Amino acid sequence: MEGFALTEAVYYILLSLEKPLHGYGIMQNTEKLSGGRLHLAAGTLYGALTTLLERHWIEALGSEASSRKKEYKITPLGRQAVRAEMDRLRELLQNGETITKEWEE
């Protein structure tokens, strides 16, 4: 997992997929989780989903033949990626707080 800084979009996509969702549901959930700050366009979403599938961080679930909606779910590797990103962000925050603490004096 080392060496991969996640984009905000990928981070929220992975968080969204604890329960299976289709593309439109992912778009809605990422917007909700980000407090409305993140609006994913379809091209951005499906490009990210392709990359996440290639990395085995998500899996596509079987869909009914009559439905065009493909659902996706996070994998154990995807969960590891989220945890690694959270650790990276915590370190960034701690380093920033250590340095900027002196600025307030």
Rank of each mutant, 00 (worst) to 15 (best):
T50G: 08
M27G: 08
T75Q: 04
L33M: 06
E97T: 11
T50P: 01
E2D: 13
E71V: 07
E104V: 15
T50C: 03
E91R: 13
P76F: 00
L89R: 15
K101P: 01
I74T: 01
G3M: 03
G36H: 02
N29Q: 15
Y46K: 13
R88Y: 10
L61I: 11
E104T: 14
G96L: 12
K73P: 00
A84N: 08
M1H: 07
A81I: 03
K69T: 13
Q80N: 12
N29G: 01
N29P: 04
T51F: 02
M27H: 03
Y11E: 10
T7S: 15
R55K: 11
R37K: 14
S34T: 00
T30N: 00
W57C: 15
K73V: 08
G23W: 01
L21W: 01
E97S: 07
P20C: 05
K101E: 13
G35T: 03
E54H: 10
K32S: 14
G43K: 05
K32W: 03
A5V: 13
L52E: 06
G62E: 10
L49N: 02
S66D: 07
L17D: 02
G96I: 04
K32F: 11
G3E: 05
L77F: 04
R90E: 04
I13L: 02
E105D: 14
L40I: 14
I13P: 01
R68I: 10
A60S: 14
N29T: 13
L40S: 07
L15A: 00
I13C: 00
L17Y: 02
P20A: 15
R79T: 10
K32D: 09
A48D: 13
Y46P: 09
E97A: 11
S66N: 05
Y11I: 05
E105R: 12
S16I: 00
H39R: 14
H56M: 11
L38Y: 05
L15M: 09
T44N: 02
T50E: 09
L38W: 05
G3W: 00
E97R: 07
A81M: 08
E31N: 14
Q94D: 11
H56P: 02
A9G: 03
G36K: 02
